[in-house]
């Protein structure tokens, strides 16, 4: 009981702190200076209409490289913890899905993959990008696991995709160092026409690589959690 009271007291003090923040908050009327620079100069400097993509891939590109590394480490840790031993036991065949679901998934799976690819290739033009596209690809694999319990991913292929795209990401970044202003500078390639599919320098390339990498990693993570059902 004393413990419960302590928890309530802690949360009450936190709520007081939060209340102070909410009470002193007033909605902003204009952008902060850094954001104003990104919005004002971004389209001319980088040629990407979607400024969130410009910030993620170009202005804060190094952060994104670190973030992809963190995701890789997370996938590695999940593989290490769940990959062997625990899932070896065969628990008998799981209940198969119905004929309708199986057939529908066979048609839907390529379309879902295509949609994921569409999202990350158009990341610099419309909302979306590598992370969202990768998540859609992983959702497509999830659909496959739900409908066909016996299905296995080809781990050799996925890890090849994953490591190749991670490697190429760093290579493209180094290309920016050689041909343009710095590491991960997107002006290593010509900026092209504003708003066209092949524009904004290396941004679509990097986002495609991120999309493939995230899609492969998250699919494997989901499969590890499924185990040998």
């Amino acid at each position: 009981m004393a413990k419960r009271l302590l928890i309530i007291l802690t949360l009450f003090l936190l709520a007081l702190m939060f209340w102070d923040v909410v009470a002193s908050y007033s909605e902003k009327q204009q952008l902060a200076p850094v954001a104003a620079h990104y919005v004002g100069q971004g389209p001319d400097e980088l040629g990407a209409p979607n400024l969130v993509t410009a910030v993620v891939v170009a202005y804060r590109g190094l952060d994104t490289l670190g973030e992809v590394t963190v995701l890789f480490l997370a996938a590695l840790a999940v593989g290490l913890l769940l990959g062997t031993g625990a899932s070896e036991r065969n628990t008998g065949p799981a209940n198969p899905a119905s004929e309708i679901v199986e057939t529908a998934v066979e048609y839907l799976f390529p379309i879902a993959l295509l949609f994921g690819v569409y999202i990350f290739i158009n990341g610099h033009l419309s909302p979306g990008g590598g992370f969202q596209g990768g998540a859609v690809i992983a959702s497509a694999s999830l659909l496959l696991f739900l409908a066909l319990p016996g299905v296995r991913l080809r781990h050799a292929l996925l890890s090849a995709i994953e490591s190749l795209s991670g490697f190429s990401y760093v290579l493209v970044g180094l290309l920016g160092l050689v041909l343009a202003g710095g590491f991960l500078d997107n002006r290593a390639l010509p900026l092209g026409d504003y708003g066209a599919l092949f524009s904004a320098g290396t941004i679509p390339i990097i986002y495609t690589l991120i999309g493939l990498k995230v899609g492969a990693e998250l699919s494997v993570v989901v499969e590890r959690f499924r185990g040998n059902a």
């Binding site: 990104y38 910030v55 993620v56 804060r60 973030e67 995701l71 997370a74 992370f131």
Partner: peptide, 15 residues
Amino acid sequence: VDPIPSALVLTAIVI
């Protein structure tokens, strides 16, 4: 709106 918090939250969700 400010694109920087959007970009940070985008990566934060994945992490």
